[in-house]
Simulated assay, not measured.
Amino acid sequence: MSQADEGVDLDTSVGYLLKQASSALHAAMDAVLRPLGMSITHYSCLELLAQRPGLSNSELARGAFVSRQAMHVLLQALERDGHVSRPAVAPAGRVLPTELTPLGRERLAVASAAVRAVERRMSAELTGRQPQELAALLRRCIAGLQA
C-alpha cells in the first residue's frame, strides 16, 4: 500500500490547498491592514456595512465569520472611534442597525485599496477568464458543502 492510499495527498487535496491559500491570503491581508490599525475582521465589518448599510450585529458577525460577542466588542470600538453609528434606541424590535460614518468610509477606502492590491498579487498568475472561473468554481464548492 502506498502512502497515497493511506491518507490524503497534500499536493492534490483541494481542502488542503484551500487552507494554504486561505492562510497565505490572511497573512498578506494582515500585513497591509495592521499598519492601518485594522484587523481583517475590522476591515470586513466596514466593507460589509459599505455594501449593506443597516446590518445588525448578528448579520455582521455571520458576514465576517466571527461570533456575535466578538462583533459586539468590535462594534463598540468602531462606534467609539467614530467609524460607525448606531441609534441609541432600536427603531423596531431589539436590532440596532449599524451604518458607516464619513470617517469610516475614509478609512475603508484606504483599506480597500490595500486589500485589492493583495488580491491582484494573489491572482497575478491567472490569465484571461481564469479569475472568473476560479470564483465560479469556489462558489460551486461552497454550495456543495452547504447542500
Rank of each mutant, 00 (worst) to 15 (best):
Gln130Thr: 01
Pro131Ser: 00
Arg121Met: 08
Ala143Ile: 05
Ala28Pro: 00
Ala147Pro: 02
Pro35Lys: 05
Glu59Ile: 10
Met71Gln: 09
Ala136Pro: 01
Pro97Cys: 11
Glu119Trp: 01
Ala70Cys: 06
Leu18Glu: 10
Leu74Thr: 04
Arg34Val: 01
Val110Asn: 09
Arg107Thr: 15
Ala50Gly: 11
Met71Thr: 03
Ala70His: 08
Met38Phe: 09
Ile142Lys: 11
Leu60Val: 10
Tyr16Trp: 09
Ser23Val: 04
Ile40Tyr: 00
Ser58Asn: 05
Ser123His: 06
Ala50Trp: 11
Arg129Asp: 12
Glu47Lys: 15
Tyr43Glu: 01
Arg68Ile: 12
Ala147Glu: 07
Val118Gln: 07
Ala111Ser: 04
Ser58Val: 13
Ser112Lys: 13
Gly93Thr: 14
Thr41Asn: 13
Gly54Glu: 04
Ser44Leu: 13
Gln3Asn: 00
Ala147Asn: 09
Leu74Met: 08
Asp81Met: 08
Gly82Ala: 05
Ala111Val: 04
Met122His: 00
Ala31Cys: 00
Arg121Ala: 15
Gly37Tyr: 07
Val95Asp: 11
Leu60Ala: 02
Gln51Phe: 00
Ala136Gln: 15
Pro102Gln: 04
Thr101Phe: 04
Ala77Asn: 10
Gly37Thr: 06
Gly128Arg: 02
Glu47Phe: 14
Gly82Trp: 07
Pro131Met: 06
Lys19Glu: 10
Ser67Asn: 07
Leu96Met: 14
Leu145Gly: 10
Pro87Phe: 10
Glu6Trp: 04
Arg139Leu: 15
Arg62Pro: 06
